[in-house]
Nucleic acid binder design. Structure first.
Lengths: 346, 346
DNA sequence: CGCGCTCGATCTGAAACACGA
DNA sequence: CTCGTGTTTCAGATCGAGCGC
């Protein structure tokens, strides 16, 4: 077999100095003579020595971040994670990832505990707020828990959170549909036990009411975010709300199914039916026709979360213990062909 | 401030036993009397004690997995990661994630070293094989490196690898286009410094040749996997290969752009133009028209990788040190409306 | 620059105890 | 009463690095 991995002692012996000197070189201290330092570095390189994070972690603050998320198959989640990984690497932080097996999973105590066992310096919680799982999370937080930054939930429910103004985005896009002259605007929502889904619905209904329109029960259908569910929901709307001439869909993936279904029924978009989505995934520019949507900066969201945790480590911050630190990002309306009946399609 | 976290000593003191007994309870040993065990568990729960993974890691084999990947924004990659996370949690493994900032990044030595510093038991390398970065990876592997399982690369280049038979998938779908009676079949490839892109192109050209067709330079355009690049590539094909009546696109996202562009030019799919993709992302069933594609089991790929590393830990395996352990998964052809000109579109 | 101690857990060897022969 | 046998427990050394002196 191969020899066990070299330790700091092996290096020390090979250099003819004490382990302390090696340690100093590793940590870039000044009190080592240039000659010794060079010699040590050479030996380290030659032996392929790497310090043990475990041993080191016993004496120092860890530089590991925990991330809890759910639904990696959704583009918004995976893009957020990309933002997190890149920013964490910028700051030299390691990252331990946990994924909830399903959105309904409420018992995350073991996940949080496992992260605490790893001595993480902070936790980014990017799983959606569904039903009462927020309560479950709160109950799962053990004493001595590192700071947790919550993404994409109800900003009111957590002390440290970053979210996107779903209400505002939905209001903007609904208003745009009204301005384009559409009369009967339906909504396909996300699962209504999701906070984000409820906010988007609220933006839609408020925009209609502010424009003096009535909001009937038959103009709303609930989806599950999945493309397939968009198909079902739209089919029901066609039956139950035949006067519909526009629909605001709670995410782009379901909007894709609406476009597909409308095409199969020979409905012309945007002439006979206006369609708008939410999320602003890059593919939406290539839907047929290109999709009007509300763009969220998922990547920026992830990066911001990392920076927030990093800030909490600064000594001056930890003392001031900001009671509530809530950031709300504003989404951006992107107008494309699927809602512009006045002009030629691009 | 709050008191520091409880250690095993605190628990021992509170129970009036030695730390050794606590340790035994934590590790589910048999040699603890039921009374003592219960008492200890109660105190642990009451104090909110959690063992430190660092201290533990100094004496035992770690149960942490390292994952290196690139391109989380691509659906295939994020789905693979989902497979990895869920399977790892099945086995009680922790997971440290590293993402290459770009596909071109070749200097991954620091990433691998950082993982080794964390004493990972194995590494899953799911970044694509691009250009000569394979050579770079090899050079970056320090001595005493834990086993590395490579996903999606050239199976020949790594001892431990899992990949999907891109050649076979491409051959199947190209053959299908031929069988449907399409005469002039173009290809939009991925970036040709990617192994996978070259394999798919090879499958396409071989299928054409086997059918007695010639393969001209003007029937091939290179994309970058991104939807936008599909648009460019297709525009060039329209100009340079006007007799084209079908196109095999190297991934679904670029195929979306082809459908979009064809629609803008008034080209009817599948009647005037057959279109097929690769990957089998769930949205492709809702493209207009629904897309024929080659489905890869990304999730299964990730799960398999975890199991493979797990296997290597079994003592009987490590001794037999299998020289080359290569798994090649077979992709599945999914025939949808975009290539079926004989029948009505669904 | 180095010695010796420390971090928090695990491992080793052996002690303390109960039991029946 | 002593001796083995087996169970339960403990004190002390130990892992690899960092820190004070």
């Amino acid at each position: 077999m191969q020899p066990p991995r070299a330790t700091i002692k092996d290096v020390a012996r090979a250099c003819g100095v004490s382990t302390q000197t090696i340690s100093r070189v590793l940590n870039d201290r000044v009190d080592v003579s240039p000659a010794t330092r060079e010699k040590v570095l050479a030996v380290i390189d030659q032996m392929g020595y790497l310090p043990s994070a475990y041993a080191r972690g016993m004496r120092q603050q860890s530089s590991t971040l925990g991330v809890v998320l759910a639904g990696l198959q959704h583009k918004g989640i995976s893009t957020t994670l990309k933002g997190i990984t890149l920013e964490a690497q910028n700051y030299g932080l390691d990252l331990i990832l946990k994924e909830l097996p399903s959105f309904e999973a409420t018992n995350m105590k073991p996940l949080i505990q496992s992260l605490m066992t790893q001595q993480v310096m902070g936790i980014i919680y990017a799983a959606p707020e569904v039903g009462d799982n927020w309560v479950q999370v709160q109950k799962s937080i053990p004493p001595h828990c590192p700071p947790i930054v919550y993404l994409k939930g109800n900003p009111a429910s957590a002390p440290l959170s970053i979210s996107i103004d779903n209400y505002q985005g939905a209001y903007l896009v609904s208003n745009h549909l009204i301005a384009q002259g559409y009369q009967n605007i339906a909504h396909i929502s996300g699962p209504l036990d999701w906070f984000e889904a409820r906010e988007r619905r609220r933006g839609w209904s408020q925009a209609l009411r502010d424009a003096g329109r009535s909001v009937g029960d038959n103009s709303l259908q609930e989806g599950s975010w999945d493309t397939a569910s968009g198909h079902n929901a739209f089919t029901k709307l066609l039956k139950g709300f035949p006067e519909m001439d526009a629909v605001f869909v709670a995410n782009d993936q379901m909007a894709l199914a609406v476009l597909s279904c409308a095409w199969q029924h020979g409905l012309k978009v945007p002439e006979q039916l206006g369609v708008a989505g939410f999320d602003g995934i890059s593919e939406s520019a290539y839907f047929i026709p290109s999709l009007t949507t509300v763009k969220q900066d998922f990547r920026g969201l992830g990066a911001l979360a990392v920076r927030k945790i990093k800030q909490l480590q600064e000594p001056e911050m930890s003392s001031s213990k900001v009671g509530a630190d809530t950031t709300i990002l504003t989404p951006e309306l992107i107008i494309r062909a699927s809602t512009q009946r006045s002009i030629e399609r691009a």
